[in-house]
């Protein structure tokens, strides 16, 4: 069938499962990214800024970061 010999079922099954798992991972990571960006935007809209943050690694505010580490 489809010129793939007697074992076409195994070939299709393996391509299908690879496609399924990889697509699932792409969708999950894309969805996760959207969720996090939306949450961040919501928090910023509520006026929470991280300028006064004293500890932690993730400083989003570019000015705060570069005055701290670059200059």
């Amino acid at each position: 069938m489809f010129g793939l010999g007697p074992h076409y079922g195994f070939i299709f099954a393996s391509y299908a499962i690879v496609a399924f798992v990889l697509a699932g991972m792409i969708v999950w990571i894309a969805w996760d990214g959207r969720t996090q960006r939306r949450l961040l935007a919501e928090l910023e809209a509520q006026g929470v800024t991280r300028r006064s943050k004293r500890h932690g690694s993730a400083s989003a505010d570019p000015d705060a970061v570069f005055s701290g580490s670059d200059k």
């Binding site: 991972m25 792409i26 990571i29 894309a30 996760d32 990214g33 996090q36 960006r37 949450l39 961040l40 928090l43 509520q46 929470v48 991280r50 006064s52 943050k53 932690g56 690694s57 993730a58 989003a60």
Partner: peptide
């Protein structure tokens, strides 16, 4: 591609957590 995206997501997630704590 997946790894870079996932890393970005994780950084954003940590920011969201930090902002919530601050809030």
């Amino acid at each position: 591609v997946l790894h870079l995206r996932a890393m970005q997501n994780e950084i954003l997630r940590r920011r969201v957590m930090a902002m919530r704590l601050l809030q």
